[in-house]
């Protein structure tokens, strides 16, 4: 754990400090590395016992599309990792309704259960965070 967390003794350095972290995913997978490396940050954040939310906005919703098969491009398919997040106690996955609709997608097309938010709900949630990290 200390290697993945950057040698930080989580318990000592950040004990008792719980902030609201939102990771805003706005890039499609595979075309660029942002989605994959963003997911790596999310997994590490689980070790710090913070209040973590993931938002999927714009092309970020494509990260969650079911049925990704990457053999032909010889790149690792990381979409199953979103299903594993629950095991890390990361359960707040929010999807922007307008981004889904604009791409002809519905919740049925997504690999994990999510909460779909209206503009107003997403704006409120984003504004309520302490730290917003965008990919």
């Amino acid at each position: 754990m200390t290697e993945s967390t950057g040698g930080i003794e989580v318990e000592e350095e950040t004990a008792g400090r719980v902030k609201k972290f939102m990771f805003v995913n706005r890039k499609a997978p595979y075309g660029t590395i942002y989605a994959l490396e963003g997911l790596e940050v999310v997994l590490i954040s689980a070790a710090f016992d913070q209040d973590v939310s993931l938002a999927f906005v714009d092309d970020g919703v494509y990260e969650l599309v079911k049925g990704q098969a990457t053999k032909g491009i010889d790149v690792k398919n990381f979409s199953p990792t979103y299903r594993a997040l629950e095991g890390y106690d990361i359960e707040k996955l929010y999807v922007d309704a307008e981004s889904l609709k604009a791409r002809g997608l519905t919740e049925e097309n997504l690999i994990v259960p999510v909460e779909v938010l209206s503009n107003e709900e997403m704006a409120d949630l984003m504004a309520a965070q302490d730290v917003v990290i965008s990919f």
């Binding site: 706005r26 906005v57 714009d58 307008e98 409120d124 984003m126 504004a127």
Partner: peptide, 15 residues
């Protein structure tokens, strides 16, 4: 990009 459009859509009054 359409980044500004998304930003304008999700920016609350007062931001």
């Amino acid at each position: 990009t359409r980044n500004l459009e998304s930003c304008l859509r999700l920016a609350k009054a007062g931001s």
